[in-house]
Simulated assay, not measured.
Amino acid sequence: MTVRFAALGDSLTEGVGDPVTGGWRGWAALLAPSLSPDPVDFRNLARSGALSRDLLVSQLPTALALRPQYAAVVVGGNDTLRASFDLERTSRQVAALLSSLTAAGTVPLTACLPDPGRLLRLPAPLARPLARRMRGINAVVHALSEHHHAVHLHLADLPWTRQRALLSVDRLHPSAAGHQLIARGFHALLAEAGHPVGPPPVDLPVRAPGPGANLWWMATQGTRWVAARSTDLLPGLLALATIEARHLLRGSSRRLDHAEAAATAAIISRLTAPSSKPPLPDPLATPPAADTRPTG
């Protein structure tokens, strides 16, 4: 019996940071052969720059047509890196993704994500708003994963900042070693949950980036990324940073944390209520423009 596995997501699931001849490999491709002792039909639908709405409108219909037994749904990082970020909207989109997949009998694989401000070592007025957004997304994904019985990997808890070898040169995506760690983590969780998986993913030889890798990445990819974020994220983030700096000077920054926590708890309560059925957003509606430029 062939097992079908569809991977929905952004650049992390596409495999950025784990280069192979002709493109990227990534954790989902590494995990796929280990999902079953039988043959596995794997389709990677993830695309760099994808937002939650992109998964819902563009990737989900293709995934459902495949009738997969497993589907990766790792998303949210790009949403937090947009000036148009709205936790309520993103949460409803993630809820709709998981609801649609589980209704079709698919087991979702989800993960919480590390704080990008911490990975990039941004100053506090810039890092704290991003961290607040990421905490909100992660809390929602935790709750929705439990609500929909997803296999959830605590990806944010991995030692990204302590083990530099786990990060690629852009400091936002896993390295080849990081992708292998994610694949093994999902395999272990599936085995613990009683899924009939095959042998764990094999350890592949990896080579750490050389001393000039950071300069090469900045010359070939990083400058484009910085320019893209300068026209989208940066103006909004600077406005948030101004507010954050004022609160830091007044010693009242915890008010923002408490407000974020209260808003997140309210969203979770609405989306996980027994009668809650998050509607699928209308693809023909006019939302904020989706930015599909690569984050890394």
Rank of each mutant, 00 (worst) to 15 (best):
Leu122Glu: 01
Tyr70Arg: 12
Leu66His: 05
Leu113Asn: 03
Pro108His: 05
Leu45Ser: 07
Arg132Leu: 14
Ala127Leu: 11
Ala83Lys: 12
Val74Arg: 02
Asp54Gln: 12
Ala103Tyr: 11
Arg128Met: 12
Leu119Asn: 10
Arg47Leu: 14
Ala104Arg: 14
Leu126Asn: 01
Pro129Lys: 02
Gln69Arg: 15
Leu109Ser: 05
Thr90Met: 05
Ser91Lys: 07
Val107Asp: 05
Val75Asp: 04
Val75Tyr: 00
Leu51Val: 15
Ser52Lys: 02
Gln69Glu: 15
Arg67His: 08
Ala104Asn: 14
Val140Pro: 06
Arg128Glu: 12
Asn138Phe: 00
Leu120Arg: 10
Met134Gln: 14
Leu98Asp: 05
Leu64Trp: 05
Leu98Cys: 01
Val94Pro: 11
Gln59Thr: 05
Ala50Tyr: 15
Ser48Lys: 14
Pro125Asn: 03
Ser91Leu: 07
Gly117Val: 04
Arg89Gly: 13
Arg89Ala: 13
Ala104Gln: 13
Pro114Trp: 01
Ala72Asp: 10
Pro129Ser: 03
Pro125Leu: 03
Ala50Ser: 15
Pro114Lys: 09
Thr110Ile: 06
Ile137Lys: 00
Ala95Gly: 06
Val74Thr: 11
Leu64Gln: 08
Asp54Lys: 08
Phe85Tyr: 09
Leu97Asn: 09
Glu88Asn: 13
Asp86Trp: 07
Leu56Thr: 06
Thr106Lys: 07
Arg67Val: 00
Ala127His: 11
Leu122Tyr: 00
Ser91Pro: 11
Asp54Tyr: 06
Asp54Thr: 14
Thr90Phe: 05
Leu109Gln: 03
Arg128Lys: 11
Gly76Gln: 02
Val73Asn: 07
Thr102Ile: 11
Ala111Val: 06
Val73Thr: 07
Ser52Val: 09
Gly136Val: 04
Ala111Gln: 11
Pro68His: 06
Ala124Gln: 14
Ala124Phe: 10
Ala127Gly: 12
Thr90Gln: 07
Ala72Glu: 08
Val94Gly: 07
Asn138His: 03
Gly77Val: 06
Leu56Trp: 04
Leu97Gly: 00
Arg128Pro: 12
Ser84Ala: 14
Arg121Ser: 11
Glu88His: 13
Pro125His: 07
Val57Lys: 06
Val57Gln: 10
Leu119Ala: 09
Ile137Gly: 01
Gly105Asn: 11
Ala71Lys: 08
Asn78Gln: 08
Pro114Tyr: 02
Ser99Lys: 15
Leu130Ala: 06
Glu88Leu: 11
Asp79Ala: 08
Gly77Leu: 10
Leu122Ser: 01
Asp79Trp: 03
Arg47Ser: 13
Ser52Asn: 08
Leu101Asn: 09
Leu97Tyr: 00
Thr80Glu: 08
Ala139Glu: 13
Leu87Arg: 05
Thr106Ser: 12
Gly117Lys: 00
Leu97Arg: 08
Ala131Cys: 10
Arg89Cys: 11
Ser48Trp: 10
Ser99Asn: 15
Thr110Tyr: 07
